[in-house]
Amino acid sequence: MFDEIIYILLGIGVFFNILAGVGLLRFPDVYTRLHAGTKCTTFGSIFICGSVILVALKMWYQGGAEESVLALHTAIALIAILITNPTGAHAIARAAYRSGVKPAAAVVDDLKNKGRRKK
């Protein structure tokens, strides 16, 4: 039972990571690519790191000593990914807008008026 949970979590994680790659290739402009590249990799990382934590906990339960350290460090790496990934995406989106890339086929663009209203 425990092994099947690990396999299922690994499968979900890999599926979402591959989806991120396909989305990067398929979407038309920077912002939509950021949607795919940020959300899907973060979600896939949660599942893959979770399954690694379960693997380490199982080995710890079977009598290993170092594996608890492996689980703890994997959790810290997961927290690092969770904090840095959306912040980096926000920075890239703002830089893309300020360097002049407009969203392709946009229905509405409120940000265009930002500087004008202030003056």
Binding site: N17, G37, I48, S99
Partner: peptide, 25 residues
């Protein structure tokens, strides 16, 4: 454009981190 390449690099970095975790396990 350049931001497209940065998006690809960001995604690549995240996947490399996950790959390193799996390699370590």
């Amino acid at each position: 454009t350049a931001p497209d390449r940065v998006v690809g690099l960001d995604t690549l970095n995240t996947i490399v981190v996950v790959g390193m975790v799996i390699f370590g396990a």
